[in-house]
């Protein structure tokens, strides 16, 4: 009789643990806090553009003003360019300045792309500024920014 009760208790406990583990997966939780050694987004940007000075303009980055769920925030980057062989966008880098790992995506385009456009979904830890930087085939660098309010962070916030 007592044996039976014990088994039941154990079963319930394992069930609860399993359920919480599953819940953690679904919530896709913590990116954790920023490690002290983490590089700031500006350092990554400098590495990527190798000394060029980014000029504001030409790059349009669209995100919702308020993101309720930081786990998947849709973004859209559009860069003004004729996308011809002589003059096209070669790279677009997106940085989430307040994330523990600020790099989001580095996309490479070719004149075959027709339009320098990329769309996707990112994780956002907290309310922050998102920066998109475009490198042109002639060496010029342009950038665009936007701010997103995040209600529930996708990185443990």
């Amino acid at each position: 009789m007592t044996d039976k009760i014990q088994i039941e208790v154990v079963n319930r406990r394992t069930f609860v643990l399993g359920a919480s583990a599953a819940a953690a997966l679904v919530a896709l939780a913590p990116l954790g806090s920023t490690p002290a050694s983490a590089k700031a987004w500006g350092d990554y940007l400098k590495e990527a553009i190798k000394g060029a000075t980014p000029v504001e303009g030409k790059v349009k980055i669209d995100l919702p003003e308020i993101a309720e769920n930081g786990n998947t925030v849709p973004y859209k980057v559009n860069v003004e360019s004729p996308m011809s062989d002589a003059d096209h966008v070669t790279d677009v880098h997106v940085y989430a300045t307040g994330n523990p790992g600020p790099q989001v995506i580095s996309a490479k385009f070719t004149p075959m792309s027709g339009k320098a456009y990329v769309k996707g979904r990112m994780r956002l830890a907290k309310t922050q500024e998102i920066v998109a930087v475009a490198q042109m085939s002639n060496g010029k660098v342009y950038m665009g920014k936007t701010t997103v309010k995040v209600t529930i962070g996708g990185c443990g916030g």
Binding site: L28, L31, N71, T72, V73, M83, A96, N99, G101, P102, Q103, V104, I105, S106, A107, K108, F109, T110, P111, M112, S113, G114, K115, Y117, V118, K119, G120, R121, M122, R123, L124, G154
Partner: peptide, 29 residues
């Protein structure tokens, strides 16, 4: 790649959401 030539490529980082979705354009040659 399109018809054997590189069309678009991307490096993804941990800040990309689960089930990564990427959309882009192609000017059909």
């Amino acid at each position: 790649t399109f018809a054997g030539k590189e069309l678009f490529s991307a490096i993804l980082y941990p800040s990309v959401s689960a089930n990564p979705y990427v959309a882009f354009n192609l000017k059909v040659p």
